[in-house]
């Protein structure tokens, strides 16, 4: 795999979400769906698509740039305190892909505008759609990295992001120091919040001795995580 930064502009159609994806994300995976919701979701999905500006990318570090310990992760000039959950799952990696994905500010901005105008419900549906698109964009780049790894007869781990599984959000700054400045147009606030907000970043392990596991929310204590909501649904990026 090349060590040069890879950047992709992704067509929204590649990430097409279904009404059921959003129903699940809103919490109704196992509950009766209010009658008003399906039409509202369909309208919001149609309106959101032209507002998307999906960009994804990654950069692979390998060889001496990678060093792993039971609860930390070394990547080039950075040593992350990821905690044991993530470090354990990455321990057989010989390369690390630092990735990011964003859907741009459009849907988020529309959501805030709707809420400011008093339409909280539609605004919330837009926000949920934006979060779901960000997750599918992250899944898209994960699949892209998996395909590149497979070409070298290697496998990938699950993707892990600051803020999850005991990995502190503050290390987002260090993560982005491993990517070119202004990567995908994403910036960080002092508090490590990505702008556009609907963005995902993280690390994926690569190697012949690693494997992608079923996502295991049981090892993490983040009850309100959107990925936890989606694991009950069936969101998959078309690739």
């Amino acid at each position: 795999m090349t060590n040069d930064p890879q950047i992709f502009s992704v067509a929204a159609a590649s990430l097409a979400l279904t009404q059921q994806d959003i129903v699940n994300a809103l919490g109704y995976a196992d509950a009766p769906v209010p009658e008003y919701l399906p039409d509202m979701i369909d309208e919001a999905l149609d309106a959101a698509e032209p507002l998307l500006d999906v960009r994804c990318g990654f950069r692979v570090y390998t060889g001496t740039d990678v060093s792993l310990s039971p609860d930390t992760l070394g990547c080039a000039h950075v040593r992350f305190s990821t905690g044991r959950i993530i470090a354990t799952r990455l321990r057989h990696s010989t390369s690390l892909a630092v990735f990011a994905a964003t859907i741009g500010p459009g849907v988020e901005t529309a959501s805030r505008r709707l809420m400011a105008e008093g339409d909280d419900l539609t605004g919330f549906i837009y926000d949920t759609i934006a979060s779901a698109y960000a997750e599918t964009a992250a899944e898209w780049i994960e699949q892209t990295i998996a395909a590149a790894a497979a070409a070298d007869n290697e496998h990938i781990t699950n993707r892990y992001s600051p803020g999850y599984c005991d990995w502190r959000v503050a290390e987002q700054h260090a993560l982005f120091s491993l990517l070119p400045p202004g990567f995908l147009g994403i910036s960080l606030t002092e508090s490590a919040l990505m702008l556009p907000i609907k963005s995902v970043s993280g690390i994926i392990g690569i190697g012949t001795g690693v494997k992608r596991e079923q996502y295991q929310c049981s090892v993490c204590d983040m009850g309100e995580c959107i990925r936890r909501k989606f694991t009950t649904g069936h969101i998959h990026a078309r690739h």
């Binding site: 809103l26 919490g27 109704y28 209010p34 919701l37 909280d120 419900l121 919330f124």
Partner: peptide, 14 residues
């Protein structure tokens, strides 16, 4: 109690 979700709450608020 997770018997209703955010959209229901927002409709109630309306």
């Amino acid at each position: 109690d997770k018997k209703i979700f955010v959209p229901d709450l927002l409709m109630a608020a309306r």
